[in-house]
Amino acid sequence: MFEYHGWVTVRESAGPEDGEEFVVEQARLRRLVAGIEERARQIGGHGLVDVRWINGEPFLHLGGFGNHRDPGIPAFFREVGARAPGSYGLLYVHDDEDRAHPDGFVVHRMVRGRVSEQADALLSPCVPVVEDPWTA
């Protein structure tokens, strides 16, 4: 089982966006986001991969639940950070095929486009925190 939920605020840089070059920066950001949208269509699959502009800012939302591991999801999350190095967000993944964390979520944390991973402390371990144990 492979469950994932995440979001990214997509930003070209971590710098202020109110400079004199705002129109040029917005055009560059729109081209950058168009590339992410194209990749999102390719990833698609069995879940939600949605890029949306809200109040003039681009956001990526991810969510899904598959029978087996999908390494393309965390890879896409990292790719967004590489393409848009001012981006930030979180991706929670529960992968029962992950030998290090079979009963817990792993948090992929993006800050300034760089992704790090850490074990989750809020929803893990899945049994008994979010699910009851199986009874025979």
Rank of each mutant, 00 (worst) to 15 (best):
F59A: 04
E37K: 03
P16A: 14
I54K: 11
V51T: 01
V49K: 03
H68W: 15
H61R: 15
L62S: 13
P71V: 10
H46F: 14
R28D: 02
R52D: 08
V24R: 10
E20R: 10
E25D: 15
V24L: 12
H61P: 09
L29N: 11
R41P: 08
I36R: 02
L62V: 07
V49N: 06
E20A: 10
R28L: 03
R69L: 02
V24A: 09
I43Y: 02
I54Q: 07
V51W: 05
E37H: 05
L48V: 00
A75H: 12
I54H: 10
D70N: 00
G44W: 00
H68D: 14
A75I: 07
P16S: 11
G63H: 01
Q42F: 07
L60G: 03
W53N: 06
G19R: 00
R41C: 08
H61I: 05
A75C: 10
G45T: 02
E57S: 07
L62H: 11
H46A: 15
G63S: 07
N67F: 12
G66M: 01
H61N: 09
H46R: 14
H46K: 14
E20L: 09
R39E: 11
E57Q: 15
R28G: 00
E38A: 06
R52P: 02
A27T: 10
I36C: 01
E37G: 15
Q26T: 09
R41W: 09
L60K: 02
D18P: 03
R52F: 08
P58E: 09
V49G: 08
A34T: 06
E38K: 00
H46V: 05
H68S: 15
L48F: 01
F65T: 04
I54S: 02
W53Q: 05
A34W: 06
N55F: 04
I54D: 09
E38C: 04
E21Y: 13
L29H: 07
L29Q: 11
V33T: 02
V51Q: 03
H68M: 13
D50M: 13
D18S: 11
R30H: 08
G64P: 05
E25C: 11
V51F: 06
R69C: 07
R28F: 00
H46N: 13
D50R: 14
G35A: 10
G19F: 06
L62K: 13
